[in-house]
Amino acid sequence: MITVQELSKNFSKKTVLENVNLHVNKGSIYGLLGSNGAGKTTLLKIIAGIIKQDTGSVMVDHSKVFDQVGIKQRMIFIPDQPYFFSHYTVKQMAEFYADLYSNWNHERFQQIQRILKLDINNKVHQFSKGMQRQVSFWLALSAMPEYLVLDEPFDGLDAVVRKKIKNLIIQDVAERQMTVIVSSHNLREVEDICDYIGILHHGQFLFEKDLDDLKSDIHKIQIAFKGDLPTKLIDSFQILHKEKRGSVYLVIIRGDRVEIDETIASLEPLVYDLLPLSLEEIFVYEMEGVGYAIENILV
């Protein structure tokens, strides 16, 4: 469990994070979204105990992280550009990890090797970018971390590699309750694996949501009445968005599905359809609700 409370961080005189709160449950995958420069990397580095916050606290399993070897043993941070010692082969890097992480699992290392089919005697620097990324996951997952902190892990990777890596992550989350925080500036990249999403903008969270709640909470309906929309509907539910095409209204509405069904049925609509809503659409309307256009915040 990762708990971030009232976290602030300045670089020189520039505020990067301001009173950030974050909660990640054990065994979940948290998607940290935000445009470039929103403060994602800084937040992740603070959570991983690399840099120190100015104020606020970061607790992982009720322990501080900065300079705490115990908790860092169970956590691995993979930066957007994976780092390897120059001229090290995969094997040498693996030896280095094995020496430092006490949970290192050599069988897992060999198992992943069979999946990735990379030569352990090659120098990591001679690999392509995608292969290097795979090596970093290979090493990280072989160290059997309980927490995996990923900064833009899929950026610039092809679909095949992306798929491979996602599978590796999901497998560990499912098998041994690994907790993952993954940042991205692209919602589509992470929507299929995350259970939680948080959007960071200019160092502050715009909102945080459980994806399941989000999907069951927001609905797109096509509806037509004789005359205008009944005021009861407008008063009972939060209307995030509405537009009129002829006599048919397209409404994005927030509320419990059963309740909405019942209310609308009682109003005797001429037309009533509940349409599927993609995660991206949900975000578009959610953000409109708090006064932002999503294009400004996410790609």
Binding site: K45, A48, G49, I50, I51, D67, V69, G70, K72, Q73, I76, F77, P79, Q81, Y83, L100, Y101
Partner: peptide, 16 residues
């Protein structure tokens, strides 16, 4: 930058 982040993400105390 990258080396610094990497070394300090490892489970080694600064003293060590």
């Amino acid at each position: 930058k990258d080396a610094s982040d990497f070394m300090h993400s490892l489970p080694i105390s600064r003293t060590k």
